[in-house]
Design a protein around this nucleic acid. Structure first.
Lengths: 347, 347
DNA sequence: TGGCTCATTTAAAACGTTATAAATCTCATC
DNA sequence: GATGAGATTTATAACGTTTTAAATGAGCCA
């Protein structure tokens, strides 16, 4: 067996410098096939061979050619993130992506991103990806209820994970935040502080998680037997002024709410501003518990009590679930509901 | 000439459905080579042939296999975005990416994203990409002054574009916002409103654009011959409370500034809060002109005058410049300085 | 008709990898 | 010492495209 670096067998061309399996083969004297198997830790390769090949590979800085691997195996080593049109003020998609990237960090997978330019669910893009095998898995940064893309992927058995749940009867992989628990806990905290008429500010009703939040809120107020209020003129997606105006108006009325469960940080800001129009002070005449996903609120006065939703972690979980789906691991759970850390009220 | 769909010549296998050049070849009777040339609009192909091939390709929904193309040509059709660790509250990287994606929309290029997990400029990642040909071009979401990655790419002649300028003597491709003009205009507006002691809140001094802002500010105050103040205890990256505290303290003193040029939206919020601690009201005792990159300020009361920096457009310009660099277009300008729209003061 | 050019079309090779199947080697067993 | 069995290694053929060079056909002139 030739374990001396011989270049006698012919082509010891380094050409443009990029090392390939062939380079290692020439350097070690083994056949390209052997080198390939050694590097991929396939069976039927002796320990010494494997060791020697790995050494040389490391030495010359070999990295497999992605295109060749992809062409041969059909696997793309690509995860595609479908980003919906970004209207959010706080960087929500970027947190997901950082988390995703972290999950993919020591894998061969690359993250490609496809923003949705048209409004709504772009099913053609998804069809392209599935039909032409342009990725091994798909990530939805947001899902509409009864999302047709989800149906398409389920039918084709294509690996994917959604952020949030859609309302299909067929179960699908998702990672979601337990918005029921958030709303339940937030409302309970308001009540615990002595508030007797909590209000919740919800996302638009068509969103699935709006129902979850509402349910949590209602459970808490019913348990405590207190009054409550659900505004139907404002939601988390409407202009902040509208929220402020609403609050300002309500604050002046006798039956005004005295506690606010806010689904977002900006709406909490607007609530504070609106209440202060009537000289009402946070912590004195009313309280707020808000969902926090950024550092906006935590850096601003007055301090607002918050419950954290870790979107980076969400992204990381989505990556984890997707990798398991791609690997065909049926045992791994594919539905993750992230819990608010209700034990440790982070301010 | 065989222009009837004959499957006589043998293999009319559709196999797993994915159409390939071979499929079109079998369907039209031409050779694979001919089909390839026809589709890539190469010369030496008769008009009818080209037409027929395109027809069939469209009909069966042919899309070229990226892996095969990449393997053969060495071009990856991939643009890689290097994202720095995200600490920003407002989604800044995501705007760039949306713009980039828009520029790449009708090209064969895909966008892959690589966040930096370690702090500072990660030169190893860049070296990998260059050495292993993992992308055709690189985008820097942010650059450090004298960024070593920029040097590496320049030396290797690898196409890239940075967001913001670094201070090399060798010119490099960049897209930047004219922060001089912003600061100059913002300060002039404050002075035009009768303010006689403007202050500017700058990014950390080590950032290149901090100098640009300072320069614009100084030019404006010198032209008007007014007093000014440059705080060195706070910057745009420090915790907002710190800004608020500073403002609160200064507001109580006799020589307090009466106009604020804010480089960011959150700092403007903090300034308002700090000033209001002493009962000072925006528009009465003092004014603010802030740089706006999101919808945060535009949705909040009191209204703050802003000058817009369109980060999505920035991303799009970066995409445009990079494509030109990759195409080897030496005539296209590679240094873009985006101007604030000073003619139309958007509130 | 033969020979030439020009316009088209085509066969063959290659890019770097992996999968299949065949070839070699080692060593105990009869 | 021949015979397998088991352990390694290897040659060959793909994957789908583009590139190079060669082949074919048509048209023209001598």
């Amino acid at each position: 067996m030739a374990d001396t670096p011989k270049s006698s067998s012919g082509e010891a061309r380094l050409k443009n410098g990029k090392p390939t399996l062939r380079t290692i083969a020439d350097l070690t004297g083994f056949a390209v096939t052997t080198v390939s198997r050694a590097l991929s830790n396939a069976p039927q390769i002796s320990a010494e061979t494997r060791k020697r090949v790995h050494e040389v590979a490391a030495e010359i800085g070999y990295l497999p050619d992605r295109a060749a691997q992809r062409l041969k195996t059909g696997r793309t080593n690509v995860i595609c993130v479908l980003l919906d049109p970004h209207e959010e003020i706080l960087g929500y998609g970027i947190s997901l992506m950082h988390g995703l990237a972290r999950a993919l960090q020591d894998t061969p997978y690359h993250l490609i991103v496809m923003p949705n330019f048209i409004d709504g669910a772009n099913i053609d893009a998804v069809r392209h990806i599935v039909r032409n095998g342009m990725a091994d898995g798909l990530i939805f940064s947001r899902t509409e209820p009864f999302d047709p893309r989800v149906r398409l992927l389920l039918e084709n058995g294509f690996p994917f994970v959604t952020h949030g749940r859609t309302e299909f009867t067929t179960p699908h992989p998702y990672v979601d935040y337990d918005n029921f628990s958030f709303a339940y806990e937030a409302t309970k905290r308001l009540i615990a502080r002595g508030r007797r008429k909590p209000m919740i500010i919800l996302p638009p009703k068509r969103m699935t998680f709006s129902q979850h939040l509402l349910h949590g809120f209602m459970t808490a107020v019913r348990e405590a037997g207190v009054a409550y209020e659900i505004p139907n003129e404002i939601d988390l997606d409407c202009p902040v002024e509208q929220i402020r105006d609403y609050m300002s108006r309500r604050a002046g009325q006798p039956d005004a709410p005295d506690g606010f469960a806010c689904g977002g940080e900006v709406s909490a800001l607007a609530t504070i501003t609106g209440m202060s129009d009537h000289g009402l002070t946070l912590g004195l005449e009313y309280d707020i518990v808000a969902k926090r996903t950024s550092k906006l609120l935590s850096q601003i006065q007055p301090k607002v009590e918050t419950i954290y939703e870790d979107l980076t972690d969400t992204g990381e979980q989505m990556g984890r679930v997707l990798l398991a789906r791609i690997a065909g691991d049926e045992t791994a759970d594919m539905q993750v509901l992230l819990q608010p850390q209700i034990g440790f009220p982070v301010v």
